[in-house]
Design a binder for these strands. Sequence first.
DNA 1: GCTCAATTATGACTGTACTCAGTATTGGGA
DNA 2: TCCCAATACTGAGTACAGTCATAATTGAGC
Lengths: 240, 240
Amino acid sequence: MPALTTKRSSLRPTDDASLGLREKNKIDKLHRIKIAARELFVTKGFDDATTREIALRAGVGIGTVFIYADNKRDLLFLVANDELAETTSKAEAAVREDETCLQNLLTVFRHHYEFFGRQPELSRLMLREMAFYDSGRQADRFQATRERAIKLVGAVMKRALDRGMIRSSEDSGFIGWVAFCIFQVELRRWLMTKDLDIDQGIAALQRSLQLFIQGLAPAKECLVVSKRPRQSAGRGRAKA
Amino acid sequence: MPALTTKRSSLRPTDDASLGLREKNKIDKLHRIKIAARELFVTKGFDDATTREIALRAGVGIGTVFIYADNKRDLLFLVANDELAETTSKAEAAVREDETCLQNLLTVFRHHYEFFGRQPELSRLMLREMAFYDSGRQADRFQATRERAIKLVGAVMKRALDRGMIRSSEDSGFIGWVAFCIFQVELRRWLMTKDLDIDQGIAALQRSLQLFIQGLAPAKECLVVSKRPRQSAGRGRAKA
DNA sequence: GCTCAATTATGACTGTACTCAGTATTGGGA
DNA sequence: TCCCAATACTGAGTACAGTCATAATTGAGC
């Protein structure tokens, strides 16, 4: 069981004497709600974990829960935000100046596969909201972290462009975006598989990214030589 | 168990004397529920349309609604399935033997942009489920139509490969899948914009797909050989 | 320490999706 | 025609997410 709790970098429960009682209580309540929600989501699943039970376990009233998260879905992000931000930071740190573009992409994405693979059911729910979130308190932060990840992929691409390892008329941010598109959909597909084998998932992603890098351009010589084999006789599907 | 929806090509309310009363009633009820759900979803939005009101308007009991759809989300698919299937069929028919790969892709995807742009709020909800649906009665059919669209993109790619308009060591089905990945995420992004201008959305998609087709290869030998202006690519954009 | 406006917490209450035990309808067999 | 099992329909009932008027807590000014 890998540590479910976050690094103690940011929100620590209750020290820091500089804060007033009011502030300390708020931080503490938030922390308890976070812990309770995580435990119940993980053990019972999202639907079967009731907000009342979360409130009970956190030792707060039901109304209090909805001060810290806008709705039940938002609780999901509350639970995941710290860990996801940390995942992105680790991915940032793992990028290597001297590696190939593809290798760096796979490194970044592997960190995310590991994160999402840890709690598949919750990940599926989170990814569902990732696309169209209704700006809840916590979903905002989630989205911000996602932007950071997209930027990171763009940075990887920029480095590769600068060093001449790849070539394109488009700018690195846009290239990163397209790579991120592929990552997102591949991740989704992987999360629907049974065993969730990371190496297998990454291998599939690698294949897609390799295809993206290679492109589909016909080698010029081929175009020149070949005389467009016109087999347009049958199988015409076009109508009207 | 006879399927609820697939008996006839397009469910018309109540003719076909060969059917028993029982069957006819079922088809009729389903039809009324579909109409009622569509009207209320469109006028009041998904959240504000209550299942009770849908039942009332359809002239059935609330329990009956949940015989035909597994849950409220499933009602969404009930409403959209016919139209989406039709959209895919139209897209299939619009593919042209003599067009470029990119052009055919854009034609297929434009049909889908038009469909989803018609009811943006409902589309966003539907797309949310597209990735991870919890196999409700209607969601299954939705997913099947999606598979058909992926196959269609693969077929477009196959044709382009066969005619030498594109080149790749990968098979057409897989190439189609990657193109579909890009389409999906671009569509999602487009649906989050304010004005939902189709030409604008398609232009963005085109840029991504063009990048995919071009690739990022530093083109070792290709670069050396390429003295020829690639005239065949000069088709530019579609009707727009 | 005391006062009191500002902030934070609370849980009874509301409206919702969805269930299921019971009722009504159908069609084939007599 | 009538009967009755199989099928389809129903709405009162249940459990839930989320609200909001009220209560409790805090800390600055005295």
